[in-house]
Design a protein around this nucleic acid. Structure first.
Length: 307
DNA sequence: GGGCAGCGCAGGATGATTCA
DNA sequence: TGAATCATCCTGCGCTGCCC
């Protein structure tokens, strides 16, 4: 009886996985992707132009860094080869990657000179011949630099945008749904006692105690009745290879919580994108409640029944 | 030899903690 | 109290070993 119920559940979720995949494919319309790429590429060119102007076409890099640490993003991509934030901080210990954030902080002149020296050692000579010739760049040299490094910067940025956009939207959908249903949002804190989260209250991105390791972060913690907590992990996957690891993440946390909390915790996974049916089956076998972003009504129904 | 699964790392974001 | 630093998480990707 239990076996047939599980089998039926797996068939149902295999169908849902197919729907989720189709939703994902439709969301990746070529024209939308091309528009995204065009916007990010344009923004990258503007960043490069700003960095070139602020540094007087790389003649005075410290001046640009004193103006804003944000220009370092461009300078890192003019090195040969382009260098990551962490790698640059290794070769230039005085540089802090936080200064590169958008609207980044200004850098002191002596630090900027030190950073500029590290950049100068790694500057791509073929891309910036005018610096060595001690002259202003030709228009075609600036154009070449723009067309060479703008795609490098844009490629990183669009990946980050696509990664975070889907995940943020997924979590926002849940918190909005809960708020609309009258659930109370609690400030994030360490959940280490049984009654820490009352019924019809929830926390977003909070830490949840385990028995064997340090507390594990949970995307959404929902207080159900009888002091049971629904620990919900939100997972977006863009391909089936990735869904293996995402499901492994959920199972690892689920086991850590179950060991510590026993029947006082239920783990749930809210899935979106391309998830292999076999991975969904692994969640079901482990007793994880599975929901889908394209069908939040199922989740609503579940929490209405259990809260 | 090809396909698959698992592992570990990259690069970035962000929360937590420490320090001046 | 704000800045700096540390720790952890996220998704994507490449490598490696195993199995058929």
């Amino acid at each position: 009886m239990v076996t047939s119920h599980l089998a039926a559940l797996k068939i149902y979720h295999a169908e849902q996985a197919e729907i989720a995949k189709n939703v994902y494919v439709q969301s990746r319309a070529p024209s939308d992707d091309a528009t995204d790429w065009s916007l990010v590429l344009r923004a990258a060119r503007k960043q490069i132009t700003a960095a070139l102007r602020a540094s007087m076409f790389l003649i005075d890099v410290p001046a640009a860094l004193v103006e804003s640490g944000e220009h370092m993003l461009v300078f890192r991509h003019i090195t040969a080869p382009p260098i990551s934030q962490d790698q640059f901080s290794l070769v230039c210990p005085g540089w802090r990657k936080a200064t590169e954030r958008p609207h980044g902080s200004r850098i002191k002149l002596d630090e900027a000179q030190f950073i500029a020296a590290a950049f100068e050692e790694r500057r791509s000579r073929p891309l910036t011949p005018w610096v060595d010739a001690e002259r202003r760049p030709l228009k075609r040299e600036v154009r070449r630099l723009l067309w060479t490094i703008a795609p490098l910067i844009a490629s990183q940025q669009i990946q980050t945008i696509q990664r975070t956009r889907a995940a943020s939207a997924q979590e926002r959908a849940i918190t909005t749904m809960l708020a609309n249903k009258g659930w109370m949002r609690e400030p994030s804190s360490l959940l280490d006692t049984r009654a820490a989260l009352p019924a019809r209250h929830f926390m977003h991105k909070t830490r949840y105690a385990t028995a064997t390791s340090s507390p594990q972060e949970v995307d959404i913690a929902l207080g159900l009745n009888s002091t049971v907590v629904l620990a919900m992990e939100c997972k977006v996957s863009n391909d089936q290879t990735n869904s293996v690891k995402r499901v492994n993440d959920v199972l690892k946390k689920s086991n850590a919580w179950k060991t510590h909390w026993g029947s006082f915790v239920k783990t749930a996974a809210l899935l979106q994108g391309v998830i292999a049916p076999k991975d969904v089956a692994r969640l079901i076998d482990d007793g994880v409640e599975v929901f889908w972003s394209h069908d939040l009504s199922s989740l609503e129904e579940f929490i209405d029944t259990h809260s």
